[in-house]
Write a protein that binds this DNA or RNA. Structure first.
Lengths: 234, 234
DNA sequence: CAATATTTGTGCGTATGTATA
DNA sequence: TTATACATACGCACAAATATT
């Protein structure tokens, strides 16, 4: 096979060929070994690895030392309306929504938390970490922080829609404002979301208020940008 | 120098050392050459390059073939209110805002454009590409698409705030809804924004309407996520 | 202007370490 | 234990972009 195109380096030519061939494979399939592929294309293993690097960066492949290199599921975007609850708008689309409670902590509030939630120095916050799954695939990692005055209401929460649960407890929340950004995941976050470290996260920091307008919850959601977009509607 | 490694690979130890030393340098400074650095740490040039790769991935360094490797400016976040015009909210913060018109095209509308802008089959759109600079640094790449009926109004636009210009032409626009996501830049986009290919972009697709409520403009903005966050306020 | 040096980019070869089956 | 997979690290050579003489 002749990979002579001018101007493009060999490893990117290779990446293009592999990118194309990936479409013949199903998610979860393993790529042939690096030595085998390098031999097939008659290139050095380093060069083959560089080509594979490109596809890993693009989020198409997942490398696992000792096991092999797997094809990842094709990205799917689930638009989400900002105004409504997370779960409702999605289940309306026929998507299976799950939420797992990962951890529950109580600790002193940071300065930013005190400012946003109008807390006094020395106050504690309750922190809940949850993982959101859409159709069984992890999509968002959410860190909720509540005033400690709401602790009693949160005691029995075990999973599922947190906003629905709170509404049932007599505490309907409305979003007050959000700050949206993007960054790369930490090693830990990438692990929990089963994503490559090189694919971006969409970050949404939201302050929510109770019906009386008091700030109650500060949440930071980290979502796989290849599975998720955030919709702002009037 | 002994880079004792228990668990951490050499190139990441090196990256940590370099990351630390970068704080002594000013943005725009050049790093010593690769051969020089490799010699100083007594490692192979590949290993040194791999360490530098890490910092390039993190957006701290910019490589330029034939010139050298430069230290980039520390990330700065400019929150932007969704409701107001891009320029106003920023110049209020004392930031120098510029907009360059890169390109102007007229072409047939795509299906999505016809649907969003309520156009008929065969209608054309006017497409303007602009580059936004904050304090002289490129931050956003924006693609504006207008109904061809607005063509006359756009003829004299050469740069600066597009919304302000249009308001002056008797066409004040208001945002109707936005879809926010994140992805990695293409090679071309990264080049125009002077950013590494591995740092994420925040993408905002916005539909704007004229005072009568008619959809007039569809814009897609691509912003460096390390310089930009999007704020949604009520 | 041309020639040359410097700097990063690409590619090959080899060896060894580490995780997994 | 052994075999196989990916991970790290060394070496050398040349190409391409840029700067300098």
């Amino acid at each position: 096979m002749n990979l002579s195109r001018q101007s493009e380096p060999l490893y990117r030519e290779l990446a293009a060929v592999l990118r194309d061939e990936l479409r013949q494979l199903r998610p979860g399939d393993y790529l042939p070994g690096e030595l085998q592929l390098a031999a097939r294309f008659s290139v050095n293993r380093h060069t083959l690895r560089r080509a594979v690097d490109e596809l890993v960066l693009e989020g198409r492949l997942l490398r696992q030392q000792g096991k092999g290199t797997r094809v990842l599921a094709a990205p799917l975007i689930y638009p989400v309306a900002a105004g409504s609850a997370y779960s409702e708008s999605l289940s309306a689309l026929g998507v299976r929504v799950e939420a797992q409670l990962l951890e529950r902590r109580r600790r002193p509030a940071s300065q930013e938390e005190r400012q946003q939630l109008k807390l006094a120095e020395g106050d504690d916050v309750i922190e809940l970490d949850t993982l959101r799954l859409l159709d069984g695939q992890p999509v968002s990692l959410i860190r909720h922080r509540f005033c400690v005055t709401q602790a009693a209401r949160l005691n029995d929460y075990r999973g599922g829609s947190l906003r629905q649960y709170l509404a049932g407890q007599g505490l309907p929340l409305t979003r007050s404002h959000s700050l949206i950004g993007a960054r790369l995941p930490s090693r830990d976050e990438a692990g929990r979301l089963l994503m490559p470290r090189h694919a971006p996260l969409l970050t949404v920091l939201t302050l929510s208020r109770d019906p009386a307008g008091r700030p109650v919850e500060l949440s930071l959601s980290l979502s796989r940008a290849d599975r998720f977009q955030y919709q702002v509607a009037p």
